[in-house]
Simulated scan of single mutants.
Amino acid sequence: MKPILLTLLFPLLAHAHGPDNHAGPNSAEHIGKNVILGHGDLKYSADFHWAKVSPDTAPVINSHALAEDKNGLIYLVTDHPENAFLVFKKDGTFVRAFGKGLLGGHSLEIFEKDGIEYLVHVDCGWHFPAEGDAVPTNGKITILKTDGTIVRSLPTPQDMGICEPGLKKFMPCDVAYTPQGTLLIADGYASDYIYEVTLTGELVRRWGGPKKDDPANLSNAHGVSLDLSNPEKPLVWVPSRNETALKAFTLDGEYIETIELPGAYAGQLFFRDDKVYTAVCWSKENGTGKRLQGSGFLLVMDRKTKKVLSAPGGTEPVYKDGVLQPLMQDPSKPFFHGHDLYVDAEGSIYLGEWAAQRRYPCKLTLTK
């Protein structure tokens, strides 16, 4: 990315991640405890008061992303300077907080290697104080054990001498652990490149990036997710969020296909059984107009056909001649900005939101 492009990008990112929202901690009173959202056979009861914890005990700013460990505990990464991680039982019981001083929490990954479970912290470079606006700086990737012990921080592209000329920031959005035991890192707030590195920080390859007038173009590569349903041909899915599209690549970075999601600024994908899930951070006015602040919803897709089956918090998905019609937020506006989600083995969705008045994740339970 050229320096002038980075200069133009930063004001957009400041608008997207900088303002601190002081409307009230864990505000969800206008929604109620359990609301039914979704369409067809995929309707969910949404509990906006799932997390049983006080902001005095475990404060959050943005509830950015979630994952589950082998003991069935749900880990939330947040960007509050007092605690990078909050841990919950699936019923919302609070277990512990840790990671003070790990700033800019935006995504996480849990993986097991040689019988030890590890936790990856993605610092996107937007660092919040306890009160006030975020400041953009260089992000980083940190590997920990799930008990909170820091193993190492990985070198940035600048440290490795492989960044684009004039690009002074590394601002990763997401990370995925591969079958080869490496990490894929999506630098979605700076270069839009995908870096594959070893667990000790050696570069394996770099691919992606902005490609004008090319279907493989990435613009705000907000996530990176692996579909391993075909072990012979694993796919890497990357949202090109500014294009309201999801794009598939091989592990080597060869472009495969694009899924258009008109009206939906979707993030990283989560694969569970025969479904694909993603959180939508912004809706468009009437599905085709300007991007709306304070909007967002979820998408549940068929894993084989990639068709949208349900849009909890959004309008019902409609296809005409095989083409998805523009989606938009439901008039009830239950969500602020869907940022990332986790789906457990029972099909329950744990949703983290950005700029959502410092509220904790919502749990959506599939109705019977």
Rank of each mutant, 00 (worst) to 15 (best):
L251A: 09
G201F: 08
A221Y: 01
T178K: 04
L199D: 06
N242C: 06
T198R: 13
D187S: 06
V280M: 07
D273V: 12
V236G: 05
G296C: 06
E196D: 11
E260W: 11
S295P: 07
A279D: 05
F249T: 00
G267V: 00
S295T: 09
P262N: 15
V280S: 04
G263M: 06
S240F: 02
Y265P: 00
L228K: 10
T305H: 11
E196I: 08
R272W: 06
I259V: 15
V276Q: 02
T178P: 00
S240Y: 03
D252N: 15
P210K: 10
L269K: 02
D273L: 12
L261E: 02
T200Y: 14
V276C: 07
S225W: 04
P179A: 09
T178F: 06
S219R: 13
T244H: 10
Y255C: 13
F270K: 08
D302H: 13
I256M: 14
N242H: 11
S191D: 06
V276P: 01
L309S: 02
S229L: 09
D187K: 03
A264S: 10
E196C: 11
S240D: 01
H222D: 00
G289M: 09
G253R: 14
R206V: 13
Y189V: 02
E260D: 13
H222Q: 00
L298A: 05
A248I: 05
N286P: 12
I256A: 07
P179Q: 10
K304D: 07
L235Q: 09
F271V: 08
P234Q: 12
A311P: 04
R205F: 14
K211Q: 12
A248H: 08
P179T: 09
L199Q: 09
V280N: 03
A186F: 00
